[in-house]
Design a protein around this nucleic acid. Structure first.
Length: 420
DNA sequence: TCTGGGGTCCTAGGACCC
DNA sequence: TCTGGGGTCCTAGGACCC
């Protein structure tokens, strides 16, 4: 059996964990730059805040319903996620961390256990120890555990937030209940096409022939179908190093000058290099993109990206900053107001397996240098050591008007309790 | 009249996930 | 005035190899 554990409204729940006064009240979390709603408590959903809602369009609604609004605090969410995952890992030898707020547990050899009580215990412990409420779905396959999880969440009162699909009757009932567009792995496009063919539930989907599914939804869709039929097809993913790494941001204001953009792009490249070094990879290619604000119909639009092959694999911040600058100068056009830029590094080789080039090589002196930089930044806080071409004067900032404290990762910001 | 048969690699585009 | 930021996989078609 597989269990899928999912944290309820994760970011909103993290904010609440340190603000118990917000329990039962509507809470939303915004994306970077306080742009869109990226997480909502149940109460916020109930008053009609949709996922992805632009914050400025919903200010009235927030005010009217006393919605508590937070800027994204990823330092907090990442740390809370680790705490949850570490508790879950005590409940199984096989844990697949699927996302920041979700994990699959393989329950192999648990035949003698009462999974219902096991699951309830796990759920209570996570909530008690971290303050994060979770839902648990258990079933013979991953896709079915996703379905079970959905039921546990939707009918949390009746199910006590855990639901098990352990026989055919329950499986069929669950699939007939699940709408096509809610199937894990069926996105908007496929759902639309399936609906047009009168395939309205997950059950209908499993009634299609294998060849039809493969033809229209590729091998991915076929695997999903089998998994939903109860034939274990999707297995645990072994954690591999990432194949692409990106750092991209929208800006608080529009930039028109090359030098402003250059500073941003260099900072993004440095961030990519740090992520590369963390997983001991070096990249062989890099993409840089810039674009204007597509919502501003009154301004001329321009967007462009460029992929450059590097002459040698590297993860040095200095070298990647230079390549990023070169790339930017090839696509930058004067006369536009830029809203967003990004750097994506690709085509990795392992750091300790770098093929030397006859003509040009990464500067080997950068290796110990970068090690020292990483160590200093780990000790004294990120961005303590920067390149001179980065934003030394802290001109650049993100709009984060409603940022909560880093309760768990900064000693100066830990929770204070008034004991009377 | 007839014009081989097998591969691999790369890329762009389209789908999906959180 | 203000509209997020990360990832993955699959397929088809073209270029190329012998």
């Amino acid at each position: 059996m597989f269990a899928l554990v999912d944290c309820n409204n994760f970011y909103a729940s993290c904010e609440r964990a340190f603000r118990p006064d917000l329990n039962g009240k509507p809470v939303v979390v915004l994306s970077n730059n306080d742009g869109c709603v990226i997480a909502r408590s149940n109460e916020a959903k109930a008053v009609g805040v949709p996922m992805g809602a632009p914050a400025f369009e919903y200010e009235e609604l927030f005010k009217k319903n006393k919605v508590h609004v937070f800027s994204a605090n990823f330092a907090l969410y990442g740390d809370m996620s680790q705490r949850v995952m570490s508790i879950l890992s005590e409940y199984t030898p096989d844990l697949e961390i699927y996302s920041i707020d979700e994990a699959f547990l393989k329950l192999k050899g648990f035949e003698k256990y009462n999974l219902q009580t096991y699951s309830e215990e796990m759920q209570q412990r996570v909530t008690k120890w971290t303050g994060i409420p979770i839902s648990i779905g258990i079933a013979p396959t991953k896709a079915l555990s996703k379905v079970a999880n959905r039921i546990a969440k939707k009918y949390s009162v009746q199910t006590k937030s855990t639901y098990i699909i352990d026989n055919e009757e329950k499986r069929i009932k669950a699939l007939k209940w699940l709408k096509t567009e809610d199937i894990w792995g069926i996105g908007r496009q496929h759902a639309k096409r399936l609906k047009a063919l009168n395939i309205n539930t997950a059950y209908d989907f499993t009634q299609m022939t294998d060849s039809w599914v493969q033809k229209h939804l590729s091998i991915v869709g076929l695997r999903l179908k089998h998994d939903l039929q109860g034939i274990p097809t999707l297995d645990f993913e072994i954690v591999q190093p990432q194949k692409n790494i990106a750092t991209t941001r929208s800006f608080e204001k529009l930039y028109t000058e090359f030098d402003d953009l250059k500073e941003r792009v260099i900072t993004f490249a440095v961030s990519c290099s740090e992520k590369l070094r963390r997983q001991k990879s070096a990249c062989n290619a890099m993409m840089v993109f810039i674009h204007t604000n597509e919502y501003r119909e009154d301004l001329p639009q321009y967007s462009c990206n460029i992929v450059i092959k590097l002459p040698f694999p590297t993860n040095s911040s200095i070298e990647l900053a230079k390549f990023a600058t070169d790339a930017l100068s090839k696509i930058f056009k004067q006369g536009y107001s830029y809203k967003k830029a990004g750097v994506i590094v690709m085509d990795f080789t392992s750091e300790d397996n770098i093929q030397l080039n006859i003509f040009e090589n990464s500067n080997s002196r950068h290796i110990p240098l970068m090690k020292s930089v990483d160590r200093i930044n780990a000790l004294f806080g990120q961005q303590k050591v920067k390149l001179a071409s980065q934003d030394i004067k802290k001109m650049w900032k993100m709009r984060q008007l409603k940022l909560s404290p880093r309760y768990t990762t900064n000693l100066n910001e830990i929770i204070t309790v008034n004991a009377r």
